[in-house]
Design a protein around this nucleic acid. Structure first.
Length: 427
RNA sequence: GGAGGCGUCGCCUAGUCCGGUCGAUGGCGCCCGCCUGCUAAGCGGGUUGAGGAUAAAACCUCUCGCGGGUUCAAAUCCCGCCGCCUCCGCCA
């Protein structure tokens, strides 16, 4: 949720932000009207309620006719109060809904436009070249006995897989490396629940434009999370955090579930786009002022991780129209996938500023210059440390050799206990 | 899943049977001030959060786990839900 004060005091800024994302600004007018209506309704209710309370106090001391008269008046008033209260609730809800439907205001630096209007900030490493015909990760996975897509489909359906043998070992190695990296950078490790209540899902903005991608548990009013950003954002909901304890940096492991609705035909082969995968996600609570530097920090950690995997990648500044509901700015790290001849998203980091904490009611208590304290909205940020399947895809394809074996990046060797993954079947 | 108990403004706690001077008691902690060579003790005051109003205040409304209901009036009575604890059953 954006700051209601910005909407009231500078609606044109919100209109401009909507335009930048390619969205209508109707909702701005709707929200402004709702705000006015809401305040009127509050005034009406409060004046009636105030009178009711004043008169009510007189009743216990009143006697005889005076008391009867008072009761008649307060009884009528009670009905009015009830009515005014209901009207206020309606106005309040309309205001809330219109405000909730406004996405976070994109940063000035964010490129305008849609999915294809990103700006490449940086290219790191050189895409791998081969003196043989490189195999895709599906074939390599089969040769190594690492990825079993056929049985994944048999047991669970399309976009499911078993990681077996070195595939499973590779996941654990990646998780270990991610956790080691998290530790180096001062993150508290967390294992987060991947089923959440609607509050958490909605608070992180995933029941908005992304709702189609979310699995709901039948008959339970619970959801499977698509990322541990969801439980981690809700982790401190309804809390007032000690400002001096910030930043709070978490690295949360969880399985992630995505319907991938509307992606029919995209990445149908392999494990680039799957309904379930494991991920270690960085999640940070900090002040809004510090969030911009923290965002850069998360990006640098993601880059450091990709460097450890010895991958070639580019960093893009996502265009406004391709930002999530909550994000103010988003950087994606896209690794080179040899058999696709292009860069594909491996990690992503977003600064959600105060958008999520306003929805989930997380604030910070800070000491002011004069020694007092004040409550302020704080910022949340998230960033992928390692999304396992895509990391595996990039590693297998990048480090493959002519015979179908795969060189293990140095940083993973101690976790895998070997320098090369050897095929278990012929090519 | 069955039975019972509990949920009060940071923590503890009074109040709930018998609705209105509880529009929330006291203690601890914390903050400000006084006092005392310093410190401690002592004394006085302050200390939930949200919203409305205002130049800013004063002020007003809401907030006793959450949501309804009864009533002129609800922390208090009634209904539903959630969470925690204890016992039983079941189980990785």
């Amino acid at each position: 949720m954006i700051d209601p004060r910005i909407l009231r005091e500078d609606p044109d800024r919100v209109r401009a932000a909507q335009a930048k994302r390619g969205l209508s600004d109707d909702v701005v007018d709707r929200a402004l009207a709702a705000d006015t209506a809401r305040r009127e309704a509050i005034t009406t209710f409060e004046s009636r309620r105030g009178e009711q309370k004043r008169l009510g106090k007189l009743i216990p001391q009143a006697q005889g006719e005076e008391k009867t008269a008072l009761l008649t008046r307060t009884k009528a008033l009670a009905a009015q109060v009830k009515e005014a209260e209901a009207a206020q609730a309606v106005a309040e809800e309309e205001w809330r809904q219109s405000l909730l439907s406004i996405p976070n205001l994109a940063a000035d630096e964010v490129p305008a436009g849609g999915e294809d209007d990103f700006v490449v900030l940086e290219t790191v490493g050189t895409p791998a070249t081969f003196d043989f015909e490189p195999r895709d990760h599906v074939e390599l996975g089969r040769m190594l006995g690492a990825i079993d897509l056929e049985r994944g489909a048999k047991v669970s359906g399309s976009r499911f897989y078993f990681l077996t043998g070195v595939g499973a070992e590779l996941e654990f190695a990646l998780i270990n490396l991610a956790n080691e990296t998290a530790r180096e950078f001062g993150f508290t490790q967390v294992i987060a629940p991947s089923m959440v209540k609607p509050r958490a899902m909605d608070g992180t903005g995933f029941l908005g434009q992304a709702a189609d991608d979310v699995y709901r548990i039948e008959g339970q009013d619970m959801y499977l999370v698509g990322t541990s950003e969801v439980p981690m954002a809700a982790y401190h909901s309804d809390e007032i955090l000690d400002g001096s304890s910030l930043p709070l940096r978490y690295a949360a492991f969880s399985p992630c579930f995505r319907k991938e609705a509307g992606s029919h035909g995209k990445d149908t082969k392999g494990i680039i786009r799957v309904h379930w995968f494991d991920k270690v996600e960085m999640f940070v609570y900090t002040t809004v002022e510090d969030s911009y530097a923290e965002h850069q920090r998360l990006l640098s950690i993601e880059k450091a991780f990709l460097d450890k995997l010895e991958l070639a990648y580019q960093v893009i500044d996502t265009a406004a129209g391709d930002l999530g509901l909550s994000a103010q700015r988003k950087f994606d790290c896209e690794a080179w996938i040899p058999t696709q001849g292009k860069y594909r998203e491996l990690t992503s980091t977003s600064n959600c500023t105060e958008f999520q904490t306003r929805r989930l009611d997380t604030r910070g208590r800070f000491t002011t210059a004069d020694g007092g304290t004040e409550l302020k909205a704080i910022a949340t940020l998230n960033g992928t440390l390692c999304a396992v399947p895509r990391a595996i895809v990039a590693i297998l394809e990048t480090h493959q050799q002519a015979d179908g074996s795969v060189k293990v990046p140095q940083a993973l060797q101690k976790w895998l206990g070997r320098e090369v993954l050897e095929p278990v079947t012929g090519g």
